[in-house]
């Protein structure tokens, strides 16, 4: 469902390599955790998956579509939640959701049902008629999540999705993530909360200085390392 083949990306005219020859395949029905220290290349990788950045070399495919050559088809396959939930602050929450539903072609009946369901789940219903500039960071995060989830695409790409969420909403999101993959759909998310990754993910990859330094199930990662928990493995690997 998501495939990265030898993907590289540099900044500053090629002087700083943010992602270096990265290859990954995330299968349907899989929750894939993407871990790494700050500045390791997580967000750059995610932005290349969703088409916000063009790779310097390599190929990114989402749902079988090449993100560079077939950008519109690829975008229809995925829902993206960025690490900073910046949404048009002069629109009301509902206007923003309607806008997203229109450009993604979500039919009226489905959008009504889904907006109501997700707004209830994230306790945002009473704020939907207010302008986004009255929202807290967490409320904006919920709005972006609802706008992504209401489209029900096969691939979710979430960059630090738990940041700013209250415990109840965080729990709700984890439930939704699990349900999504139970329907044989794909979930790729980055996080710094290693306990969450340990509990939710089928597989994880650890990226450091733009390169994948470990990838696999937790059991696979434990092999060859002295640590037992994901945290100790992470610390061990990223210190090297």
């Amino acid at each position: 469902m998501i495939e990265l083949v030898n993907v590289s990306k540099s900044y500053g005219g090629g002087t700083k390599k943010a992602v270096d020859n990265l290859s990954l395949t995330i299968r349907p029905g899989e929750i894939f955790g993407f871990l790494g220290p700050n500045g390791a290349g997580k967000t750059t990788t995610i932005k290349m998956i969703v088409g916000l950045l063009r790779p310097d070399s390599g190929t990114v495919r989402v749902g079988g579509y090449d993100v560079v050559r077939q950008p519109l088809e690829a975008k229809r396959q995925l829902a993206y939640v960025p690490d900073t939930p910046e949404v048009y602050d002069k629109l009301t929450g509902l206007e923003y959701l309607n806008f997203i539903a229109d450009v993604y072609g979500v039919p009226s009946g489905e959008r009504q049902e889904r907006i109501a369901r997700f707004a209830d789940a994230f306790n945002l219903t009473n704020a939907l008629l207010d302008r986004v500039d009255s929202y807290s960071h967490g409320m904006q995060q919920k709005l972006v999540l609802i706008s992504a989830l209401m489209r029900d695409p096969p691939v979710w790409v979430l960059d630090e999705p738990m940041v700013g969420l209250d415990p109840r909403s965080s729990h709700q999101l984890k439930e939704l993530m699990a349900e999504h993959t139970r329907r044989n759909r794909t979930l790729f998310f980055s996080t710094h909360v290693l306990e969450v990754a340990e509990r939710l993910c089928d597989r994880v990859a650890i990226i450091n200085k733009g390169r994948i330094i470990a990838c696999g199930t937790l059991d696979e990662l434990r092999r060859g390392q002295t640590g037992e928990t994901l945290e100790s493995i992470f610390l061990e690997l990223t210190e090297q």
């Binding site: 229109d102 450009v103 959008r111 907006i115």
Partner: peptide, 16 residues
């Protein structure tokens, strides 16, 4: 009220 205020489907051009 939420259902009523949730818009009817319109073209992407019009939404934009």
């Amino acid at each position: 009220e939420l259902a009523e205020r949730t818009g009817k489907e319109q073209s992407p051009l019009r939404a934009l």
